[in-house]
Amino acid sequence: MEVLDIIKPENQVFCKTKLMTDCPLSYCPGCGHGTAHNLTMEVIDEMGISEDTIGVAPVGCSVLAYDFMNIDMTQAAHGRAPAVATAIARTWPEKYVFTYQGDGDLAAIGTAETIHACNRGENIVIIFVNNGIYGMTGGQMAPTTLEGMKSSTSPYGRDIETMGAPLKITELIANLPGVNFVSRQSVHTHKHARKAKKAIRKAFENIKMKKGLSFVEIVSNCNSGWKMTPLESNIWMEKNMFPYFPLGDIKVDGKLK
C-alpha cells in the first residue's frame, strides 16, 4: 500500500491534542517539558474535563504554560503555585485544579507552600518536573542537583559537605498524611511516557473522588543546562538521575509502598 493511501483522516491514530495551542513551544529541542505538557493535556482531553480545569503556571521554563495549554490558566509568584491553587480549589470545589512546577520553583523557593499544601491535603494535582537544575536562568544549582554534578554555580561539581545532599522532596511529602497519591515517572521513552500518562490520569481521577492531594514527579532532562545533546542527556539521566530518584509509585491510596 502506498504511503499516500494510508495518510487519510479515517486512518489517523495519533495527532496533537486540541488542548494544546498552535503557539510553538519555547522549550529547547528534546526537553521533557513539551512531552509533560502534552501528556497532561491529553489526559484532560480524554477525561472531557477541559471546561472545568484550571491550571496554575509557575516561574521557570514553564512560565509560559498558559500560552501553550488551551484551558483556563493563571500564573503564580515564584514557588507560590500550591497556595494559589489552594485558593482556587477552595473557592470552586467542583473544579479540577492543578499546578505545573519545576524543581527550582517547587523544591527551593516554594518549599513551604508545597509542604503545607500537601500537609493540608488540598484537593489539587501537583505536576513536578525535576531536571536537577535551574533551566531558565542559566543552569544554576538547584536543590535536586546531584552530587558532583556541574552547574554554573557549582563549576567543580556539587559538594555534599558545603552544599548539602540533593533534596528528595517527593519522598519527603509522601510521608505527609494529607497526600493520597505520589508517583515518580519519566517521559524520555515511549514506555515511560505511557506510564507517566497513567499516573497523571490517576491523579486527576483522585480530584474527582475528592481523595486529597496527588503529586506526580516527572524526572526530565535539561540538555541545554547539562550541556549535552538530547539523546546524550537522556542516557545520562538514566545512568545518574534514576539511581538517586528511582521511578515508580511511592504512595497509592494513602499507603506508602
Partner: peptide, 30 residues
Amino acid sequence: YMDKPEACTGCTNCAIVCPDRALSVYRVKV
C-alpha cells in the same frame, strides 16, 4: 522524515515521545 516508509507499523511510539507533537500517525490493516 520516514527513511523506510514500508517498515512503519503506526505504533505511535515516536509521536508519544515527541515534545513538540510534530508527528501525526496513520495506521491501516492490510
